[in-house]
Every structure is written in structure tokens, then in C-alpha cells.
């Protein structure tokens, strides 16, 4: 168990190191997510009455689409440099590779969310420090990363791979998006814990189900 964890960390750290050197993914995703935030704010307006209803939606559209761009890049980079073959030659269980890539994708998305969310809250004149929102974001991003890592490994081997990932990814994560938006609404409205419990439960269930399912089927996606 401990050994598997070390291997997962090695794969994860490899991705981190590449990213530190090139800064290829984080910066582009960050800029893209901020653009989505700004464009949607223009499209919907930022009046006080709009904030309550549309603001959570705008945040989640930005995080979802930013996440997709990040996920597309993580496997595309591997594919372009034929590094995927190298990774598959590693004498490790395929599930280990999945968890390593998953940890990487999750960290990228989280890093983007850490920057985007405070900017979003400031743009809409909302309180900046919201620990409950952090919980919602972590749960939703685990869901995104669990499904997204599986599907980006799959999409990278199809023609039209850039469009394949969102087409596969978006319908499957509908429950996460709905729950995340609803939970964010309750957080921003300052509603009690009980109101968001349902949504947190759905996200936790989704995360567990998809982490298990993706771990089991990942080997069929990457086998040659």
C-alpha cells in the first residue's frame, strides 16, 4: 500500500516538475478561466439582484471549462512527446498511473480555483473568506478530476481529440455541476449547513463511485 503511494507520488511529482519548468497548463487555464468569468459577467450583468442567481453559475462555468482545458492538455502533452508510451512501460499497476495523473489534474484545477474564486468573489462584491465554499470546490474538483482523467486518457487516442473530451465529460458530470452550483448558492446566501447537505452528499457519492469505477476500468483505456 505504502509502495503504491510512493509510485503515485512519483508520477504526480513528474507532472508537477514538468509544469514548474514549462508553466504550460496552469497559466493558460488560468487566463482562460478568468476570461470566461469576465465575458459571462458582461453577458449576464452584475447587478445586485443578478448576483444571487447567476453568480454561482458563472463561477462554475469558468471552473468547468477551465478544468476541461487543463484536462485536455495533461494527456495531450504526454501524447505529443510520445511520453505516454514511456509512462505505460513503467512496471506499475495501471491504477497507479491513474491515481498519479488524477492527483496532478486535481492539483492543477485546485490551483486555478484558488486564484479564480477570490477574484470572482471580489468582482461580485461578495465576502472573500468562505471556508464552506472551499469544501464545495474541493468535492466538485475531485469529481471533475476522477471522470476527467479517465476520459482524457480515452479522448487522446481518438481523432478530433480536443472536442471529444468535453463531449464525453460534460454530460457525465452534470450531477456535480448542478450540486456545486446549488451548494454555492446556499453558501453565498449564508444559509445554514443543513441546506447544502444534500448537495454535498451527492458530490461525495459521485466522487466515491467514480473514483472506484475509473480505477477499475482505466487499464482498458490505456492498454495497447
Amino acid at each position: 500500500m505504502n509502495k503504491a503511494f510512493t509510485k503515485i507520488f512519483t508520477i504526480f511529482w513528474k507532472d508537477m516538475l514538468t509544469e514548474f519548468r514549462t508553466r504550460e497548463i496552469i497559466i493558460s487555464v488560468l487566463v482562460f478561466a478568468l476570461l470566461v468569468l469576465v465575458i459571462f459577467s458582461f453577458a449576464f450583468g452584475t447587478g445586485a439582484d443578478m448576483t444571487e442567481m447567476t453568480a454561482p453559475g458563472i463561477l462554475w462555468v469558468a471552473l468547468t471549462f477551465g478544468g476541461i482545458i487543463g484536462l485536455t492538455r495533461t494527456f495531450a502533452v504526454e501524447k505529443e512527446n510520445s511520453r505516454l508510451e514511456g509512462l505505460m512501460l513503467c512496471p506499475v499497476d495501471r491504477a497507479v498511473i491513474y491515481w498519479g495523473k488524477l492527483a496532478g489534474s486535481f492539483t492543477f484545477m485546485l490551483a486555478v480555483a484558488v486564484v479564480v474564486t477570490p477574484i470572482f468573489l471580489a468582482l461580485f462584491n461578495l465576502p472573500i473568506f468562505l471556508p464552506r465554499l472551499a469544501l464545495v470546490i474541493v468535492l466538485a474538483l475531485i469529481g471533475f478530476a476522477s471522470v476527467g482523467t479517465l476520459f482524457s486518457a480515452l479522448a487522446v487516442n481518438t481523432r478530433a481529440r480536443d472536442i471529444m473530451l468535453p463531449i464525453l465529460f460534460l454530460p457525465v458530470v452534470v450531477p456535480v455541476i448542478v450540486s456545486a452550483v446549488k451548494a454555492t448558492v446556499t453558501v453565498l446566501a449564508g444559509a445554514p449547513w443543513g441546506d447544502m447537505l444534500t448537495w454535498l452528499q451527492i458530490m461525495i457519492a459521485f466522487d466515491i463511485i467514480y473514483l472506484v469505477a475509473a480505477t477499475l476500468v482505466f487499464e482498458f483505456v490505456v492498454e495497447e
Partner: peptide, 20 residues
């Protein structure tokens, strides 16, 4: 192989989507 994976992963989503 890919479509089999989607056939499995997609179907698991049904009850979650319905509930949500």
C-alpha cells in the same frame, strides 16, 4: 474497448443524474 468503458461509466451516472 473505449466504448465499453463509456457504456459502463455512463450507465452508472443514470441514478445519480436522476436523483440530482
Amino acid at each position: 474497448r473505449y466504448s465499453a468503458v463509456i457504456g459502463i461509466v455512463g450507465f452508472i451516472d443514470v441514478p445519480i443524474v436522476f436523483l440530482t
